[in-house]
Design a protein around this nucleic acid. Structure first.
Lengths: 167, 167
DNA sequence: TATTGTTATACTCTATAACTATA
DNA sequence: TATAGTTATAGAGTATAACAATA
């Protein structure tokens, strides 16, 4: 098996080209997949699915969400969201109900059990974040976050709620 | 079709949960895929394949590379690298030759035409980078890069050549 | 006719496992 | 027996298209 990014001291790592390492966008992309990778294994180890948190979090903040709005927010195809909500519903973390005003729509709500699970996921996410950004001091983390928010305003505005004080 | 991140003013964007937008790791991951997405379309529009640049760049800096070292550096499975090198070889951008000291090995070298193409890709990468980080001032870009390098030292050391002054 | 959620299908990536030729 | 490259296969993830119910 090839060495992974979490290996420690077995040093025959073959580096990328220096001109690529000098590219901020390249680093951004590589670190993005690195973060997602650690999150996926941590979430999986804890018995969750990777998309549980984004969905439950959105329902925790604004219930009465419809499936199309959830899919749009988390960048998931509506057809994929179906199986995801099926899974959450089987675990009694969300409920789907027909919208009486437009019976084509499903209104999705988080349940009490869903809020408990959301709390666990939030704590887990905090631990993942803490471990990943451990090399940076608090001030540096804040500076990084602010720079990323500035980029997100341009390139991924769904990550910048208009009433978010960070934006 | 769902609105994409490159849309301009048609505003019914559904934001992610505020608690997710507050997560630096989440922003990192989302912006990483956003950058990669813009790079993929720009490279494709220019008639290249997305992995051409990492491979040619590594060969441009240190020729006599073997396939295993290239695959390890750019985080690609050796079996996938085969087709990639086939494509580059068909276009006469690289050559494969048996290593006389170990006839199992292929030594991969960049050609003169490959160096020309590498120059084009380097210029294109520069334009992509410039466009993506346009919201940030020069000093902010440098600060961001330095913070990302610090994280890469921990989480993706292949992105940090040991003799790189940035590291 | 258009839209919401759903189902079915296809396509891309990626990971794994065999195969060959060398060592 | 083990290794480098290759090929073949299978799996996950994603995108696209068709469908039923409702507007």
């Amino acid at each position: 098996m090839a060495a992974t990014s979490t290996d420690t001291g077995d040093r025959p790592l073959h580096p990328v080209a220096r001109e690529l390492a000098a590219s901020t966008g390249f680093l951004l992309a590589r670190l993005g997949v690195a973060f997602r990778g650690t999150a996926v294994v941590a979430v999986d180890d804890a018995g969750f699915e990777i998309h549980d948190y984004p969905v439950l979090a959105i329902l925790g903040e604004a219930d009465r969400e419809t499936q199309a709005t959830i899919a749009d927010a988390i960048g998931l195809d509506p057809s994929r969201l179906v199986a995801l909500l099926d899974s959450l519903e089987r675990r009694d973390l969300v409920v789907r109900a027909r919208d009486p005003h437009d019976r084509r729509r499903h209104v999705v709500r988080i349940t009490a059990a869903g809020r408990v699970e959301l709390g666990r996921l939030r704590a887990l996410a905090g631990r993942i974040e803490e471990a990943f950004f451990e090399p940076l001091a608090d001030g540096e983390r804040a500076a990084l976050h602010e720079l990323l928010v500035r980029l997100a305003e341009r390139h991924d505005p769904r990550c910048c709620p208009l009433d978010d004080p960070d934006c």
